[in-house]
Write a protein that binds this DNA or RNA. Structure first.
Length: 643
DNA sequence: ATAGGGTTAG
């Protein structure tokens, strides 16, 4: 009889229909009511598969059948209750634990502790730990407590407990470190992270892959990219997670080129990228305006069956939006079944940065109508959209609604948006008043927004005030010096221009050396003026010569406008751009090619240069600078301003 | 058999 039961159980456990599983298992076990064993096996399966509500249901059946839960039952049940965010059963379950006399079992205790942490009931969690003298000898209990405190932003409590462990002589293990280290990412604790790292090196845990990955992501989250890279390079074996951590860490720190290089290296190493990898890579494509790589990745995603991953969908929306392909961004967005706040933020921000503020506002209202609650991040997108589209009143209304309607405290980032909003509209006095009314200390971007507005509306006096403030806060941000210098220059104030220049020299600030880069086959190629470091330098310079030759061919034509362009090809753009374009021409050889070039100085002469070159070729150029997308085709250019 | 953990979008 009992053998028959066993087969029944295992068979049904494999069925996807859980209700059947429960019924069958319940029927099967009802004959041997007092032994918890088969119940526990079933509970483990349900909990493993994430079917938590079924697990709880099953537990109730178990009690009804008269079986007694034991120390092997509760960990599953407590975990299920925590996963379902049902605090009421949590207390009931705690009572059950006590009733069945399992409360001093270490595994049950740990499960109780972590359950209480999931419900943010830190006091209750600590009481479980404190209430039993044995728990102070157990690594597992400390582990649960430490990781709980760290996850609930109580790093200090976690640290104190870790110290207590050391003092008491309780051994720590890899899990202890994994729980504690993420807390070192809060500002000012990196040194602590480093000491922990030393400790781990001595303890022999360094060979634990998870521990190494944990430190890796700690460094990356703290912005210590170089340190992270060193650690990464030293890893004896790099798993997928290490690559992913490094790639998304670069991506979050704005090192988009490094992301693409690393993605390339990863493929060379024979590892297969997964969803997490692609999220990081796509977000870097967005930053570089590298739509073509983005498109390739989208194809790959479809092939790999990652088409439905919401993280990836959102990354795609953002990538297309930031590359200026609003049509595709919108199509991706519209096709998404379950749009979340991030999806909305991406599309709203996309329209905003390309000057379609009205669409952004419309979408935002639509989102609110749909019952999605906005957060601080989306307000930044909406406010920026309003200011770039000149929707001043609308923006002010939204800003007002943040606190009143949605109980969101504006951060200084929101203030800088509104200063920008007012400033662009020429309401400089109000902008300044807003800054003075801020509940927190205004930061660089806030004063910078005012300075930018002064440039538009030619207010030299206010500009000087804003500059004094912003330079105090960000003395090494060269952009502000350039801005003020331009303001003086617009006002024909030669003395002012000179003063700024002297100031820059005294502080040792130099304009960044000009560089340009082109993306090609998943890699980004960087060129500086006079650069000969590229492996294809020879060919590139040859191509450049051919470009010069074009001018001769061109000069034969009798057309004034063309002659002017020819002169520009000849004399204008800086060397780094020429190299980048020569490289691009060298490699592009299909008619549908779109060359995406990110260029920091696609202004004036360089703009005309690319325009002239595009007359000679069948390719399209998309050049992205700090403020616009420039789309060159057949000698014409259309610009999509962000602003 | 059972807890605790490393990588993901705006």
């Amino acid at each position: 009889m009992s053998r028959l039961n066993l087969t029944l159980c295992t068979k049904t456990a494999l069925l996807p229909q859980t209700n059947k599983t429960i019924a069958a298992a319940a029927a099967a076990t009802s004959t041997s009511a007092s032994t918890g064993g088969k119940w526990n096996t079933e509970l483990r399966e349900l909990s493993k598969q994430g079917q938590y509500s079924q697990a709880l249901f099953f537990y109730r059946q178990m009690l009804r059948s008269g079986a007694t839960p034991n120390a092997f039952t509760f960990p599953f049940i407590l975990k299920s209750s925590a996963a379902l965010s049902l605090p009421l059963p949590a207390f009931q379950l705690h009572c059950h634990v006590i009733k069945s006399g399992c409360h001093s079992e270490p595994f049950v205790q740990t499960a109780l502790i972590s359950m209480y942490f999931k419900f943010c009931l830190l006091g209750n969690a600590y009481k479980v730990f404190d209430g039993s003298p044995d728990s102070r000898k157990l690594t597992v209990c400390y582990n649960a407590l430490i990781s709980g405190y760290v996850q609930k932003a109580r790093f200090l409590n976690g640290l104190l407990l870790f110290r207590e462990m050391m003092v008491q002589g309780v051994p720590f293990n890899a899990i202890t470190i994994l729980g504690l280290v993420p807390g070192c990412t809060i500002p000012g604790h990196l040194d602590l992270g480093r000491s922990l790292f030393c400790l781990v090196l001595k303890s022999g845990l360094k060979s634990d892959l998870a521990v190494a990955n944990c430190f890796l992501s700690m460094y990356l989250r703290c912005g210590s990219v170089d340190m992270a890279r060193r650690l990464f390079d030293e890893l004896p074996e790099k798993g997928l997670i290490a690559w992913n951590a490094m790639i998304s860490g670069y991506s979050q720190n704005g090192l988009a080129k490094e992301v693409l290089d690393l993605y390339h290296d990863m493929q060379l190493s024979g590892l297969c990228p997964d969803e997490v990898t692609f999220v990081g890579v796509l977000s870097s494509c967005a930053n570089l305006g590298a739509q073509r790589i983005g498109l390739e990745i989208e194809e790959k995603l479809e092939r790999r069956g990652f088409g439905c991953n919401p993280f990836l969908k959102n990354a795609l929306i953002s990538m297309y939006a930031r590359c200026g392909n609003l049509v595709k961004a919108r199509a991706t967005f519209d096709a998404m079944m379950h749009k979340n706040l991030v999806s909305w933020t991406a599309i709203i921000g996309g329209y905003g940065m390309h000057g379609h503020g009205e669409v952004s506002v419309e979408l935002f209202d639509q989102m609110i109508q749909g019952g999605i609650k906005p957060d601080k991040v989306i307000f930044v997108s909406v406010l920026t959209a309003c200011s770039h589209a000149g929707l001043t009143q609308k923006g002010l209304d939204y800003f007002d609604s943040m606190e009143k309607k949605y109980n969101l405290k504006p951060s200084s980032e929101h203030y800088s948006c509104v200063v920008d909003l007012l400033g662009r509209a020429g309401r400089l006095v109000e902008a300044r008043k807003l800054i003075e009314s801020m509940p927190m200390e205004p930061d660089g971007p806030v004063w910078g927004a005012l300075l930018g507005a002064c440039k538009i509306h030619k207010d030299v006096d206010l500009a000087e005030l804003a500059f004094d403030k912003v330079v105090e806060l960000e003395p090494r941000n060269i952009g502000y010096y350039v801005l003020l210098s331009n303001i003086y220059s617009d006002a024909d104030n030669e003395e002012g221009v000179l003063r700024v220049r002297v100031m820059m020299r005294e502080r040792g600030l130099k304009k960044d050396p000009g560089y340009s880069y082109v993306e090609y086959k998943g890699r980004t190629h960087l060129f500086m003026a006079g650069d000969r470091s590229h492996p294809q330098t020879k060919e590139i310079y040859a191509e450049l010569k051919k470009l010069e030759a074009l001018k001769i061919k061109y000069g034969e034509q009798e057309n004034d406008e063309l002659k002017r362009d020819q002169a520009i090809v000849n004399t204008a753009a800086l060397h780094s751009e020429r190299l980048a374009i020569a490289f691009a021409l060298l490699h592009a050889n299909t008619e549908t090619d779109i060359l995406v070039i990110k260029n920091l100085r696609i202004c004036g002469d360089c703009h005309l240069f690319v325009k002239a070159v595009s007359k000679f070729v069948n390719y399209q150029f998309v050049v992205r600078d700090a403020t616009r997308f420039h789309h060159f085709k057949g000698g014409t250019c259309s610009c999509n301003d962000y602003w």
